[in-house]
Design a protein around this nucleic acid. Structure first.
Lengths: 220, 220
DNA sequence: CCAGAAACATGCAAGCATGTATGTATGTAT
DNA sequence: ATACATACATACATGCTTGCATGTTTCTGG
């Protein structure tokens, strides 16, 4: 195994950052394709073009790497969802399209990674403690996004949270099913159903809200 | 390790059935407490009060055992849900209580087992092929239960399936969250929200059906 | 330009899981 | 009661993973 010709990382700091990043990416790839238990530190190092020695130098072991990886991909997804929510608020993305995009997230790489990490965490105290903490932060971010997102629909902050969290739970549950059920029609139907529900809820709340205040909107 | 004093299984057939059953139970227990990867055939045999030799005699290996175990616990859950659905139809269980009971299933042993098996199946062709097949059967049974359950609510068969499958997906997604989020209040809220939605949907459909004709078959 | 530190590689020992071969006990048919 | 099949136990060899100890290369500060 040769030193892997880096582009040209001059400073040590850059080298470190680049190497750590490569190891984390390798971890995510392998977690996805071979699962937590199926991934060894040898695999990770090899995929990153390094050896186990290098890995040991940067991370205490597999679990520390997995935590870092979890963190990274939660950050990425938070950012994606925030972007989508912004587009919806700006009017350039429909609610339906928003759901579709989030569904893509929950039926793809991201969700399968969380599935691996969550099941691993069930039997690994080190992982569980750390992933719990990061999950909490993740959900706080999401709730903030929801509140911003649906501000002014006539729904209360708590209702918004519940509704959007229910949406995520639904998509999560569907995501789990995709592993053992390859049936796009089935999933399409569920999405259509849920979109209709959401529309009803939001419209209902909007009507109710505008009926109260002297806003422009005659009631039925 | 002594021969483990069996009660008094005379015939070979009885001995075999008892031993296989013990091994399957041990597998389920360990899958739950230590996960798929964390469970070895040594563990399973020991917990069943046997040795690896006995295990090898009855099952080709861990995976065959896991498939059998999957089958067994799907059967148990199908039976539970069927019972609950029957109680609802008979009027001795409210829709709300029905949801609560199914939620207990999806936040407990059953679902965690599924989670283990599903994630293991993602990287194990032997498992995936077999679990896919059994999952299909499981869902056919569920759909049959749903149709029977909600017969005469004014909803079409497809709508019933979609609605109940959405319910299961929601609970599944919530189940996944329970691993890293210990927050009963949060889950209660989601349940309450969903129960309200279901009630709305069913009442809406019932009204629409009885408003049209005594014949229940509304078209789009 | 030359220590010293950080980054990275290599090698070895120990633990554990599995496959398989072979030995022993328990039932069952004649 | 004897012979055979089935149920179960024991033992060994192999491969894989990890921790650790020890080299070698690459950067950085004086």
């Amino acid at each position: 195994m040769q030193p892997a010709p880096d582009k040209a990382p001059r400073t040590q700091e850059e080298r470190t950052a680049a190497t750590r990043s490569r190891l984390i990416e390798a971890t995510l790839d392998l977690l996805l394709s071979k699962g937590y238990a199926g991934t060894s530190t040898v695999d990770i190092a090899a995929r990153a073009g390094l050896t186990r020695g290098a890995l040991a130098h940067h991370f205490a072991g597999k679990d520390e790497l997995v935590v870092e990886a979890f963190d990274k991909h939660l950050t990425m997804v938070t950012s994606d969802i925030r972007t989508y929510a912004g587009l919806v608020q700006g009017g350039s993305l429909s609610l339906s399209d928003f759901i579709d995009r989030v569904w893509i997230i929950f039926s793809g790489r991201f969700f399968m990674l969380t599935l691996e990490e969550v099941t691993a965490a069930r039997h690994n105290d080190y992982l569980r403690v750390r992933l719990e903490k990061r999950t909490r932060v993740f959900h706080e971010h999401l709730d903030a996004i929801w509140r911003h997102f649906f501000a002014g629909t006539g729904l209360g902050a708590l209702e918004i949270e519940v509704m959007l969290n229910a949406t995520l739970c639904l998509l999560r549950g569907m995501g789990v099913q995709t592993v053992l059920r390859d049936d796009p029609v089935y999933f399409r139907r569920l999405l259509r159903f849920w979109k209709a529900i959401l529309k009803e809820q939001i419209e209902g709340a909007t009507r109710a809200a505008s009926a109260k205040t002297p806003d422009p909107e005659p009631h039925a």
